[in-house]
């Protein structure tokens, strides 16, 4: 059994919905993350997929303690980081870093690249004493494939792919163990995406990093992930290794999601079964009772409205030696032939 470096237990984040300008009255809550549990193993890449608004970025921020959890735990080496503050939090944060989606807005335009990458050293001077910083930053530029002489340039002088490399260099500065990547290549062109994905793969090996990799491109997630979790409306609905999720999904939402991915092969057009979901994702302020996917599910029964399915290996697959035997939160979990993402 692999060693869990992060254990996420029943994590909840509700954003209050308020009314009134002077006297704010809470009239409800956006249930952005509503009881999510999973482990991140040392050295692995855990991919997280799901449609926009399902809570992926909120999970990422909770793991970084950038948002305070409403309830639940995030255990880093056994210690609950949602309860930490001050010095103890600072010490943990060194080991968990984040790379953001938008290389255009996540870098301060008025700071030089050297200052951006070196900024974490201001908070953690113990990692790099003042006299040593310039050299450290240049090393980092080199590691991510940028010319170390660019240290005094500003973000606008770089392309999108290069800016993402700057973001990655900043993430690496404190020698973290975990990097949370929130859609790190979504804003990049295809040819540049591949370069950044390859860089991240090399860095993972070199620095023994654990990645949580959030993305909506399912084929890229498959390429780099050891395991994949699928989220829907604040819940994790299915999780397993890449083959279990992509070749043997048992949750209807995962099946629909995979079948919707266009396959870059025109020959597959004729013989593909597509599950076209109807309607929109319901509002997280007012999610359906029971299974949240039931309002769009072709298999829904009465039970789905009254009993919330738990994320566990379904009863029928419990003692079966099959890739279908993985955690899936559906009362009627079963395999279905879908041509998934390449």
């Amino acid at each position: 059994m692999a060693e869990a470096i992060l254990e996420v237990r029943d994590l909840v984040k509700h954003f209050p919905l308020t009314q009134g300008i002077i006297v704010k009255k809470q009239i409800g809550a956006v249930k952005a993350v509503d009881g999510v549990s999973f482990d991140l193993y040392r050295g692995e890449t855990l991919g997280i997929v799901g449609e926009s608004g399902c809570g992926k970025s909120t999970v990422a921020k909770l793991l970084m303690n950038l948002e305070r959890a409403t309830s639940g735990q995030v255990l880093y080496k056994g210690e609950d980081i949602t309860r930490l503050s001050g010095k103890a939090l600072k010490a943990v944060r060194r080991n968990i870093q984040m790379v953001f989606q938008d290389p255009y807005t996540s870098l301060n335009p008025r700071m030089t690249v050297g200052d951006i990458i070196g900024e974490p050293f201001e908070i953690h001077p113990e990692v790099a004493p003042k006299g040593d910083r310039r050299r450290k930053v240049q090393d980092l530029l080199d590691v991510v494939g940028l010319n170390p002489e660019y240290i005094n340039r500003y973000p606008h002088q770089f392309s999108g792919g290069q800016r993402q490399r700057i973001g990655i260099a900043r993430g690496l500065a404190l020698n973290p163990e975990i990097i949370i990547c929130d859609e790190p290549v979504s804003a990049l062109d295809v040819s540049v995406q591949a370069q950044v994905i390859n860089l991240m793969g090399r860095l993972q090996k070199e620095f023994d990093l654990s990645y949580m990799f959030i993305a909506h491109d399912l084929s890229i997630v498959r390429h780099i992930s050891d395991r994949v979790g699928v989220m829907y409306l604040g819940k994790m609905v299915e999780i397993g290794d890449d083959e279990q999720i992509y070749e043997h999904p048992t949750h209807p939402y995962t099946q629909a999601l995979l079948s919707a991915v266009p396959v870059p092969d025109p020959e597959s057009r004729e013989h593909r079964e597509r599950i076209i979901l109807t309607g929109d994702v319901p509002s997280p302020a007012n999610p359906p009772s029971g299974c949240r996917f039931r309002t769009r599910c072709w298999k829904a029964q009465d039970k789905c409205a009254t009993e919330t399915p738990l994320l566990a290996i379904p009863e029928r697959f419990k003692n079966v030696d099959s890739p279908a035997a993985h955690e899936s939160a559906c009362h009627f979990a079963e395999e279905k032939d879908v041509v998934g993402a390449a």
Binding site: S159, V190, Q195, N198, R202, S219, R222, H223, A342
Partner: peptide
């Protein structure tokens, strides 16, 4: 060539070098 393919899992993706 830069589309991820199943038989290349865990390997480097083909990447067009440089920038437009």
């Amino acid at each position: 060539d830069s589309i991820p393919r199943l038989d290349q899992k865990g390997q480097e993706l083909y990447a067009i070098k440089g920038l437009p």
